[in-house]
């Protein structure tokens, strides 16, 4: 038994797919200012394919989330494909192997973060999705004694704060890095979609 159920993992993915659909135009617009104007449409294509998976056909949350990761790898197209794909693959592996409480979810989040850092060769302060995810993992850890729900709420808030703080940074990774100084003051699309993922987790995985 993992820290969340297969049904909860399915609810998380369905919620995120809906939120990405609602925010696709906004994400693409952010990406138009600093990148190649496809983040929202790419993520929407990927998450629509994920939402079409039959949750009941998976026998563990890890199996479902692994399939979600591979579906993103094959359907997103841009850099967010291998990045979110790696996040879900690593998250899934750690989740199924981990304990069935908040620490299991913490281990999964941390594995996902490490996967993205390794895949993107990026670190905190580069103005990427890591600037939302890294503080979220820290906040989750600090609050994990208070239970999964409180920890996830703290993580989502920390992600939003990290996303906002990254706006003033100069991009050092990806297409936005070509802009140099001009990337300063622009909200990062990856940090934005990552914050949406953690907010979605707080809504759907809280009762774990």
């Amino acid at each position: 038994m993992a820290a969340i159920s297969t049904e909860q993992a399915g609810a998380w993915l369905a919620d995120y797919a809906q939120v990405i659909g609602e925010n696709a135009a906004m994400l693409t617009d952010l990406d138009r200012q600093t990148g190649d104007a496809d983040h929202g449409s790419n993520m929407d294509r990927g998450m629509k394919a994920v939402a079409a998976l039959d949750v009941s056909s998976f026998d563990s949350p890890g199996a479902l989330l692994k399939k979600a990761g591979m579906t993103l790898v094959s359907n997103v197209g841009g850099a967010s494909g291998p990045l979110y794909g790696t996040f879900f693959l690593r998250f899934a592996g750690a989740l199924d192997d981990g304990p069935d409480d908040a620490s299991g979810l913490l281990g999964a989040l941390r594995a996902g973060l490490e996967g993205i850092e390794q895949r993107g060769k990026a670190e905190r302060g580069d103005k990427t999705m890591i600037d939302a995810l890294a503080p979220a993992v820290e906040a989750f850890e600090t609050q994990s004694g208070a239970g999964t729900s409180a920890a996830l709420t703290a993580a989502a808030k920390a992600a939003a704060r990290g996303r906002d703080e990254a706006t003033d940074l100069i991009a050092r990774k990806g297409r936005a890095s070509y802009l140099g100084e001009r990337s300063k003051g622009k909200q990062d699309p990856g940090a934005t979609s990552m914050t949406l993922l953690l907010e979605s987790a707080a809504r759907t995985l809280g009762s774990a």
Partner: peptide
Amino acid sequence: GAADGSFGTDASA
């Protein structure tokens, strides 16, 4: 390219 013909790369491919 992505599966639907748009720009992209796919690690499985």
